[in-house]
């Protein structure tokens, strides 16, 4: 625990680098693409559109009276943040080998900056979400104040997964191929395009082990229904997320000195 505190202190000293690197990630990502930051909006929007066509016209998915587009976009938006963070964050150490082998700085800056950049995308895409809420004349509930709590839990989970994944990729390049597949499976194992209530009761205990279940259902509860999130799911998600974060960070720092030799 003491060493974790020291590591965070050292990271804090390098916070300037974190911001500069995150800004760099955002700039480099959109600098030479035609749509620029528009991609941040287009990507979740396109998925939502596609799922709307499939799941409200072809197959009917129950949404508790919420229009399907807003139902799925409420979860698609944070899911995109999660997925983008992982797919960009995991490759940051290996992708910046010229930096890692030539200059010293706390290595977690690189994956964290990727997450920060994905968060910028998330904020931009959230503007569309606000427009959608107005368009569908959704009421604003006081439970929206819980939003930062849910985002914090989601970020803890994201950071844990990205730290483990990015350090793991240094040792096993197989992870590069595992990430897209894993994210695809994880998407279907999470209540993004369907509600969690569709999962049969006898499987709920297993289903709830996926921390994204508690988090995504939490977003729907506070934003679309004005209800508090289900306590048991939220506690499970919080525990798993923070354990992953702490274990992930500790392991990352333990193997960090070998990065420069292995990359």
């Amino acid at each position: 625990m003491k060493s974790i505190f020291g590591n965070i202190q050292n990271l804090w000293k390098h916070r300037e680098l974190l911001w500069v690197w995150a800004a760099r990630e955002v700039r480099v990502r959109y600098k030479q693409s035609f749509l620029g930051v528009g991609w941040a909006i287009l990507q979740p929007l396109a998925f939502t559109l596609m799922f709307t066509l499939v799941f409200s016209y072809v197959v009917q998915v129950p949404t508790d009276g919420i229009p399907y587009p807003i139902f799925s976009f409420t979860a698609m938006l944070p899911w995109t943040l999660f997925a983008t963070s992982i797919s960009f964050g995991v490759s940051t150490l290996v992708g910046n080998m010229n930096l890692v082998t030539k200059i010293y700085f706390p290595r977690e800056v690189l994956p964290l900056a990727a997450i920060a950049a994905a968060f910028v995308d998330f904020l931009v895409a959230s503007l569309i979400y606000v427009v959608m809420l107005l368009w569908y004349r959704m009421p604003i509930y006081p439970t929206v104040l819980l939003l930062p709590v849910l985002v914090a839990i989601q970020l803890a989970l994201t950071i844990g997964v990205v730290l483990i994944g990015s350090a793991g990729l240094v040792f096993y390049r197989d992870i590069r191929f595992l990430v897209p597949l894993g994210l695809q499976l994880w998407l279907y194992a999470s209540p993004v395009i369907y509600p969690a209530s569709m999962i049969p009761a006898q499987w709920q205990w297993l289903y709830q082990l996926n921390p994204m279940v508690g988090i995504l259902e939490g977003y729907r509860a506070i934003l679309l229904h004005g209800q508090l999130p289900s306590l048991s799911s939220l506690v499970a998600a919080t525990l798993i997320s923070f354990v992953l974060l702490i274990v992930g960070y500790a392991w990352f720092k333990r193997v960090e000195p070998t990065f420069a030799d292995l990359i």
């Binding site: 300037e16 480099v28 930096l99 200059i103 700085f105």
Partner: peptide
């Protein structure tokens, strides 16, 4: 440290942006 030519420089960023990036790497 100046261990290798251009280590810490990002090719797509300008010289100005890289100065800030490098300074940040060195903790400034």
């Amino acid at each position: 440290s100046l261990i290798e030519l251009g280590a810490g420089f990002h090719p797509d960023l300008t010289g100005r942006e890289n100065v800030y990036l490098n300074g940040a790497i060195l903790g400034l």
